[in-house]
Design a protein around this nucleic acid. Structure first.
Lengths: 211, 211
DNA sequence: GTCTATATGTAGATAGAC
DNA sequence: GTCTATCTACATATAGAC
């Protein structure tokens, strides 16, 4: 049974995805990239934090860029899938917006470091060809939110005088920048923050009920 | 009249503040730091953009850090002064908040690059002792806004159920992150953005008038 | 999977001529 | 005020032993 053709974690080449050690190292790198910044973090910093020497990292990864690439792709794939599900299931624009916000905050539990990196380093990484998908992902998010806002305007649940592009940026910045100060072990749960934000947001942009 | 003891721009030592060339070079550096990031910008990049060689920069500045230091201090001093004036002159909390927002957006005309640098690089620069004042400045801003929000709550013009610390971060992020996409030569004036934002913000957090 | 040893590039910064 | 020339340090990455 050992000589099966299926690649188990025992015989899979180390430089491909799936090994537990890789995952550990990626988590360590993600944390450092998020807190110190990608450029300010050296491969020696990562190796030190992992208790190995810098050269040993190259047994697992091609380069520092490959590491951040994997971290970001994992987050963006996950986020895109979840957004699509929200849009499929939401019965109306107001629910859709609320759920998109709540779901973005929820992502902070799982992808806190990746979100911070996406926020802080996109401007730099987008200059490199291999990270073109970051620009595409940002455009995808924008299209999704703007469509929901416009649908809501047409349906009369969002103010007609709202500049949807501006409102989108407003919501996006509000949600994502939370990662800069959010503390996963603090008093405020991501759910509580989401509730407070959605409340401020909706009572600002929702058309008041006609009496 | 030439042999006066007063330092004119003719005889002032080049490495002190005031010369026009310094100001030009600082503006060029600020633009690069803002768009590419502080670490990603090399002194050679700055020199290239200025049409000189990298060594020549050191006739004007001690180091790359000194350059960003000057850029940030100029912005923060200006901003602090303006905030104090707003607070002195605003007759009530709602006006104070509105004017603080409007004034922050107005700062984007004069200090766009510095604001972006302050936003993007503070986390890294704060690790260095010489930039301790960045942490202090951020705390000062926070205290100012929170005081106004609390005053407004006590006066009954802001919702009593508002989490002021959360609302502050909400406003701060909303305002400052605009610099990431604000285009000084675009259709939207900073004043128009401010109006739209203040509207969304206030109709969200202002207590509705009792009929 | 990690270590030893090292190649290679490039960054920030300096000294002195013009 | 800028250039020429160069120093020094450190970053990413590699090759092969264990």
């Amino acid at each position: 049974m050992v000589s099966t053709k299926r690649l188990s974690s025992r015989n899979r080449p180390a430089r491909e995805s799936g090994s537990e050690r890789r995952a550990e190292l990626l988590a360590i790198a993600a944390e450092l990239f998020a807190t110190r910044g990608f450029l300010a973090t050296t491969v020696r910093d990562i190796a030190d934090a992992a208790g190995i020497l810098s050269g040993s990292l190259y047994h697992h990864f091609d380069s520092k860029e490959s590491m951040v690439d994997e971290i970001l792709r994992a987050f963006l794939d996950d986020q895109r899938r979840t957004n699509e599900q929200v849009l499929r299931e939401a019965p109306d624009p107001r629910t859709a917006i609320t759920e998109l916000v709540r779901q973005s905050f929820a992502a902070m539990q799982k992808h806190r470091a990746a979100i911070a990196i996406f926020q802080n380093e996109s401007k730099y990484l987008e200059q490199l060809e291999r990270f073109d998908y970051l620009t595409q992902a940002a455009n995808d998010f924008e299209r999704t939110w703007i469509r929901v806002l416009q649908d809501g305007q047409r349906a009369g649940v969002f103010r007609a005088d709202l500049n949807v592009k501006l409102a989108y940026r407003f919501i996006r910045d509000m949600v994502w920048t939370t990662v800069h100060w959010y503390n996963p072990r603090g008093k405020l749960t991501s759910s509580a923050i989401a509730d407070q934000y959605v409340k401020i947001l909706c009572e600002g942009i929702a058309e008041p009920e006609k009496p």
